[in-house]
């Protein structure tokens, strides 16, 4: 079985490494024991790059995002690994020092962006709060207004919208304002966690295009998190497929879409309709993600995997490079058919 070798496009524009996550482990402590939400995750984000994280609900996507800002829930603990931002490890630093990095270096567009606004303050005042805290010089009220006006122009909102309260905005406007707020302090990295999930398809598309344009204009690095692989396909350069807290496949978005090598990625793509190419039967992904309190031994996907062998039930496959920066954690990735989906052609 051969893998189509595609030219390595990682580190696209400058090749400059911005964020380097190494063997990150984050677990939630519960009465029944530790829940391993993020297990041994490593990736690199370059300047100007859009990276996607895709997977089912509860597979650890949001946990990764929160860990990067060290905002995991009170019972969550980073138990190993490093998060290097511009070479500086964020894991061991104090909470006070971490606060100076939040929003200033890594900002976030949250999953429930609709509810990200405090209902009792004006939108502009909530952005001002971040500017007052992180802007290198102290801005006067007029300068803050001007800055927010610029940001609003960037996301397609009128400047005077900053005087309104969140409930006076439509869903799409609130999302645009959230993006403006995320951009306010010129962060190096933006994490967009399900940025468009709560919006209708038309607004969803507008927002994604807007984000893509802003990313190109400002040469930003964005980590997109979504369960919707169509979104990931549209906006990212490289992507990671997550399963049960582990990264199971990593590579160029185009590569993974054309030839997924991990059985889970293959099944995930087979369960999603495509409007291009031949009509085909959709194959539902059977079963449920495992209980992370007591994950299966060996490969965590083995109970649901059609290609599982005895080795898979005992030994955990490492995330290994199979050429061209395409990484897969599977013993039998060569068994996964290329060009054929699990449902077959209709």
């Amino acid at each position: 079985m051969t893998t189509p070798l595609v030219e390595d496009t990682s580190g696209l524009k400058s090749g400059q490494t911005l964020l380097e996550v190494d063997n990150l482990i984050m677990r939630y402590k519960t009465k029944q024991g530790y829940v391993s939400a993020v297990e041994d995750v490593s990736f690199v984000l370059h300047k100007g790059e859009a990276l996607g994280l895709v997977g089912e609900s509860g597979c650890g996507k949001t946990s990764i995002a929160l860990s990067l800002l060290r905002l995991q829930a009170d019972n969550g603990e980073i138990m190993g690994g490093s998060i290097k931002l511009g070479g500086k490890d964020l894991v061991p630093i104090s909470e006070e020092e971490m606060r100076t990095h939040r929003w200033n270096d890594i900002s976030m567009v949250f999953q429930g962006a609709m509810n990200s606004w405090n209902p009792v303050y004006r939108v502009g005042d909530q952005i001002k709060e971040a500017l007052d805290l992180h802007w290198p010089t102290r801005l006067s009220r007029a300068e803050v207004r001007e800055r927010i006006g610029e940001l609003f122009a960037l996301v397609g909102l009128p400047a005077d919208a900053q005087d309104r309260y969140p409930h006076e905005f439509s869903g799409g406007m609130r999302q645009r304002a959230v993006i403006a707020m995320a951009l306010s302090c010129n962060p190096q990295v933006i994490i967009a966690d399900e940025p468009t999930t709560a919006l209708d398809v038309i607004v969803q598309d507008q927002i994604l295009k807007e984000l893509k344009r802003i990313q190109d204009d400002l040469d930003m690095s964005i980590i997109y998190i979504s369960h919707d692989i169509a979104v990931i396909a549209e906006v990212t350069d490289r992507m990671a497929v997550m399963y049960a807290g582990k990264m199971v496949e990593f590579g160029d978005t185009a590569d993974i879409f054309s030839a997924p090598r991990h059985p889970y990625a293959w099944l995930l793509l087979s369960s999603t309709p495509s409007i291009v190419g031949p009509r085909r039967q959709l194959a539902p992904l059977e079963g449920e993600p495992p209980n992370l309190l007591d994950p299966p031994t060996g490969c965590r996907f083995n109970p649901r995997c059609p290609f599982a062998t005895d080795q898979c039930r005992v030994e955990e496959p490492p995330l290994a490079d199979i050429g061209g920066g395409h990484m897969v954690a599977c013993w039998n990735y060569e068994d996964v058919p290329v060009g054929i989906t699990a449902g077959g052609v209709a």
Partner: peptide, 14 residues
Amino acid sequence: KEDYILTARAKGLA
């Protein structure tokens, strides 16, 4: 428990 509290934390507020 509200989302805007998480936003406030992510902003780096004290």
